[in-house]
Design a protein around this nucleic acid. Structure first.
Lengths: 110, 110
DNA sequence: ACTATATTTTGCTATATTACCAAATAGGAA
DNA sequence: TTCCTATTTGGTAATATAGCAAAATATAGT
């Protein structure tokens, strides 16, 4: 694997890593429904405001969301809705894992 | 956000995290093309065999790939090809970021 | 300028991830 | 059994991430 290709994979991984966290996943899904300001998101999530702010900055740096100051609050937008396209697949994986567990349990009757 | 929903987000994040690494991204893409054993992947990646093995186990635990012992080697399969559906979107994000950089540079002539 | 509100930044600590090396395990061949 | 090869496991050090609290910044209103 040459250096250039390696950088490409690293860049991709950085974007994916940005959504690979429960809170950030929630934020992205919520912003798909409607724009929200930092305070609203903080309240929904129920974590410290500084923590939520940091998650927002991770998503912003990745280019997934954008912010717009509106007076005293800052409104966040989902910049790239397609980033949620694979949630369906993620659910498939979870489903298959659950099925596997079921099969293991039901096939090994003690 | 109630506890059940939180667990759901955490489960999803775990799956996504499994592909949020350059090496693991490479593995998944390579396995989409064809099945490979651990040795082949290790050589392509150029890291320590134990390192690659650990990456493979992360993907396996997530349910994204599966393994099959074949004599002395272990062949890996991509279990859930749809997991790569969002690469197109990731590339869009990268493209948009690059464009932003260009715009900043060309609009601020010194 | 002073106060109040919204948000981010900084400092700190705890936890998690990653990579390499060495040692253990599994299977096939001599 | 012994040897050889393929792969995984365990240990460890370096680095990255997450979350809270305190301090800093920005804006609007008085």
């Amino acid at each position: 694997m040459d250096a250039q290709l390696q950088r490409r994979y690293k860049a991709r991984a950085t974007i994916i890593k940005a959504v690979a966290h429960p809170t950030r996943l929630f934020i992205v899904e919520e912003l798909k429904k409607q724009n929200r300001n930092a305070g609203e998101l903080t309240e929904m999530i129920g974590a410290d405001a500084s923590t939520v702010s940091k998650h927002l900055s991770v998503l912003k740096n990745a280019g997934i969301i954008s912010d717009e100051r509106r007076g005293t609050t800052i409104i966040y937008h989902l910049q790239t809705p397609c980033i949620l396209n694979f949630i369906g697949c993620v659910e498939e994986v979870l489903q298959a894992k659950a099925q596997d567990q079921m099969n293991i349990i039901s096939s090994c009757k003690l």
